[in-house]
């Protein structure tokens, strides 16, 4: 006969087994990349939810844009044309500068600065937990996105892809506490590592000795070291430098320039790594010829 009470021992045993299983899963997920593939496969089942909440919002956006007056569109078109013109004139300047820069770099025999391919991706209006600092975009392995790929927007570096499925990817923002990005100070070429703080739009520089020349307002760009992020994209501006007497290093906070919580369009970059042999071998062959 069944009682109205649950079979308690059985429930407890099951709970404990599941708890142990969950802890093992967490450990594996945190310590190794063994679950990345599993995660990517499983996120296929998450994609329908992400698109399901995105479509109504897309529809509302579409409605608002299709009922814009002709006047407003005309005006927008005008301003955009002017902007294109000014940007194009600037671009011609930059092309000349770029050639000069390449020549200088070959002279100094340092790595060449090669522009890679980019792809525009759109944010999916799907929220993740606010404390994990992730975004969901509408490009996945089908478009060639891969884990570790850098993501940029018009103002600077946004983050990197940490999980891909067929049609969606999760981006880890540079402000996440488990993300680090190698940077360079524009003013004096000082190299450092910027680590996310977990607060919105804020990073910190780690292990900067107290004697280092660094000031509020210094701009930081990606240094391209480690090869994950391309060289020369804006990361942030130093917003606070503090020398705490008890600390071994200076406490430096950086404000991200990418304005991560604004705008729907992002760029996926394929940084083409400069082949080391190109810059090294000519010099060696030059020595022996």
């Amino acid at each position: 006969m069944k009682t109205i009470f649950l079979n308690r021992t059985f429930l407890g045993v099951r709970a404990i087994i599941l708890i142990v299983l969950a802890v093992i899963l967490m450990f594996v997920d945190h310590r190794s990349s063994a679950l990345v593939q599993v995660n990517s496969t499983l996120s296929v089942v998450a994609a329908p939810f992400e698109y399901a909440v995105d479509y109504p919002i897309k529809f509302v956006n579409w409605l608002t844009t299709s009922f814009v007056s002709r006047e407003a569109l005309f005006q927008e078109n005008q301003t955009l044309k002017i902007k294109v013109l000014t940007l194009q004139t600037k671009l011609t300047q930059f092309q000349a500068l770029g050639v000069e820069d390449q020549q200088l770099k070959t002279l100094m025999q340092s790595a060449k600065y090669i522009y890679g391919k980019v792809l525009v991706a759109e944010l999916i209006a799907s929220d993740t937990a606010p404390y994990v600092h992730q975004l969901v975009i509408n490009k996945g392995t089908q478009s060639g996105a891969y884990v570790g790929q850098p993501v940029l927007n018009a103002r600077g570096v946004v983050g990197q892809i940490i999980q891909t499925s067929k049609n969606t990817s999760h981006i880890l923002l540079i402000t996440a506490a488990n993300n680090a990005i190698p940077v360079e100070d524009v003013r004096n070429g000082l190299r450092a590592i910027a680590v996310g703080t977990g607060a919105v739009g804020q990073l910190k520089l780690v292990q900067i000795p107290k004697t280092t020349d660094i000031r509020v307002g210094d701009e930081l760009f990606t240094s391209g070291l480690a090869g994950r992020y391309p060289i020369g994209y804006s990361v942030g501006v130093i917003s606070n430098v503090q020398d705490l007497p008890g600390e071994a290093f200076t406490t430096i906070t950086v404000k991200s320039t990418a304005a991560i919580n604004r705008g729907r369009l992002l760029l996926l970059a394929w940084p083409s790594k400069p082949p080391i042999s190109v810059s090294v071998i000519p010099s060696i062959t030059g020595l022996f010829s």
Partner: peptide, 18 residues
């Protein structure tokens, strides 16, 4: 998987609450 947290995190919390 949906919210991008570490796998097993919400599972553990929900098992204990359940």
């Amino acid at each position: 998987i949906l919210t991008g947290t570490m796998i097993g995190e919400h599972a553990l919390a929900l098992v204990i609450v359940a």
